[in-house]
Structure formats: structure tokens, C-alpha cells
């Protein structure tokens, strides 16, 4: 018996594909900002300007937590129990 979710997935077969790409883009963007924060904190700490280190860490931690809870929205696909012989990597 069909339900709303199944009908939605049939009506928009590319939806989870787009969602996953968007999620990965956001994660990569977060990591880019974290690399910049780490570089800035390290550069300033080595130059004896240590006051930026804690705000940079807090910012980096927040970005990590955003990314962590972001994983909740990863679409898991329709078929968790894979059919034998069917490639699940799409």
C-alpha cells in the first residue's frame, strides 16, 4: 500500500540525490571554514597573539556540531535491505 513518502519519492526520483549533494556541499563549506580558523589560530598563537585561539576553537566546535547534526538529514534511500546483486552505490 502506498503512502505519502513513497508517492513523493516516485514523483521526485532525484530528490534524495539533490539533498545528498547539498548536504555534502554544506559539510565541505564548513570544513573549509574550520581549516581557515585553525590556520588563523595557529598562525596567531605562534606569533604570540593567543587571544584569537579560544574564539577560533569555539567557532570550529560549533561548525563541527552543525555538521554532526547535519548528518541526521542524510537520506537513507528507499531500500535499506539491499537486494542481492543490486549495486547500492548510486
Amino acid at each position: 500500500m502506498s503512502n505519502f513518502r513513497e508517492a513523493q519519492s516516485k514523483a521526485h526520483p532525484n530528490k534524495s540525490n539533490t539533498l545528498l549533494s547539498a548536504l555534502i556541499c554544506v559539510l565541505i563549506f564548513n570544513i573549509g571554514m574550520q581549516i581557515w580558523l585553525l590556520y588563523t589560530a595557529l598562525n596567531n598563537a605562534l606569533g604570540k597573539h593567543t587571544r584569537i585561539a579560544w574564539p577560533a576553537f569555539i567557532g570550529s566546535l560549533i561548525l563541527f556540531l552543525i555538521g554532526f547534526f547535519w548528518l541526521y538529514f542524510i537520506p537513507m534511500g528507499k531500500d535499506k535491505n539491499q537486494q542481492p546483486g543490486k549495486n547500492k552505490y548510486r
Binding site: L20, L23, I24, L27, I28, N30, I31, Q34, I35, L37, L38, A41, L42, A45, A53, W54, A56, F57, S60, L61, L63, F64, G67, F68, W70, L71, I74, M76
Partner: peptide, 22 residues
């Protein structure tokens, strides 16, 4: 999906690195 999880793992490593620097 696994790639997204790896990204999150890297993100955690970067946050830990920032914490170590601080």
C-alpha cells in the same frame, strides 16, 4: 553517505586541533 560521514569526522578532527592550539 559514507563520504558525508568522513567529512564530519574530519570536521571533528579540525575542531579538536583548534582546541589543542587554544
Amino acid at each position: 553517505r559514507d563520504f558525508a560521514r568522513y567529512l564530519c569526522l574530519v570536521s571533528g578532527g579540525l575542531a579538536a586541533g583548534s582546541g589543542f592550539v587554544a
